[in-house]
Design a protein around this nucleic acid. Structure first.
Lengths: 187, 187
DNA sequence: GATTCCCTACCTGTCGTTAGGCAGGCTCGA
DNA sequence: TCGAGCCTGCCTAACGACAGGTAGGGAATC
């Protein structure tokens, strides 16, 4: 447990926040999850705010790497747009979890400043990537690509939120399909 | 204070939940808000779960009435679709608040069953109304109107969530405009 | 006289956080 | 090679604050 305790804590905390939010993250429960005591977490993170910020930062870093890898692998922007909703879909499949950024956006008013900032990073990363891919695909006017990117990100987030409220991934799939039918996403 | 204490509590609780969620709703703070003591709330609501369910129920009832009134007033479905995002916009303007249903959807895993059910009622009401209006407007195939209604509801919710995370109503307006430009909403 | 509405006082449990200690592995001078 | 000292990672125990909820009483209303 010792070697990568910090990583184990980060991972467990991420999963908890995606299910119960930052407010639902408790040092005692988290410690029990990873098999240590609550006070021991303070050896790795100075405060809950520090932990929250670290979790959110790791979340967008991982996502940025994953999205870049996807684009590098296929180099087909339209296919990338097709695959994009899958990251959100996976959270739902994995225990009906929400995007960490969405949960923290809801909790916006209760969040320490550092946590808030890192949570926004996730949206920034997604929108930047979508904007780039949309420009590569040439589906929208270049000057509209960032606005469209934001729209796609917000809409997919909303779809995940709705599907989660029904504990039904099928609802997510249907919503994405509707986005394609309506023209928000390429068909 | 006595005559409509229950109503005052419901209203104050609704505003708190829209800002801090069900988890962020505390009997002590709520009591202080309305000018009584925490224990006195139990004369009106038997438990926090009861209060939460009542707040959510009132929320969708009010929304249902408001939407029906709007449709009855203008009887122009396209204009109704144009005005629809305004309900969400108003929450943002009023203290950067979120839709109560969206917040509770995020908190889904932490909610008592009764609260969860009433929170879903809001989405049901919105989707049913949107479906009806879309059918009246004849903008989509009748058999697609409910799916499109769901898509609009989810997308607008997502837009509100994103705008809130930036404390910027302008982002909401821009997102709605993008939805119109892309064809999700009529232009 | 019963009901309504609110009160004070208190219960148990959980929260984030801190103080202080203990065991094992590291470095480094004698 | 040995032991001293230090760092790391974890522990137990406790702190004050706050949570939801309860018991029981007092005053006004019907």
């Amino acid at each position: 447990m010792s070697a990568n305790a910090k990583e184990t804590i980060l991972e467990a905390a991420r999963k908890t926040v995606q299910a119960h939010g930052y407010g639902g993250l408790s040092y005692r429960d988290l410690a029990a999850d990873v098999g240590i005591k609550a006070a021991s977490i303070y050896h790795h993170f100075a405060s809950k705010a520090d932990l929250g910020a670290a979790v959110a930062r790791r979340y967008w870093e991982d996502t940025a790497a994953e999205l870049e890898a996807m684009l590098a692998e296929t180099s087909d922007p339209v296919r990338c747009l097709r695959l994009y909703p899958d990251t959100f879909r996976r959270s739902l499949v994995d225990g009906n979890r929400l995007c960490l950024c969405s949960f923290m956006s809801a909790e916006h008013a209760n969040l320490p400043e550092g946590v808030r900032r890192e949570a926004q990073g996730f949206a920034d990363v997604n929108i930047a990537w979508l904007g780039k891919v949309l420009a590569l695909a040439g589906l929208v006017e270049p000057r509209d690509s960032e606005a469209r990117a934001r729209a796609i990100f917000a809409a997919v987030s909303g779809a995940q939120l709705y599907a989660r409220s029904r504990s039904d991934v099928g609802q997510f799939d249907a919503l994405i399909e509707s986005y394609r039918a309506s023209g928000l996403l390429p068909a």
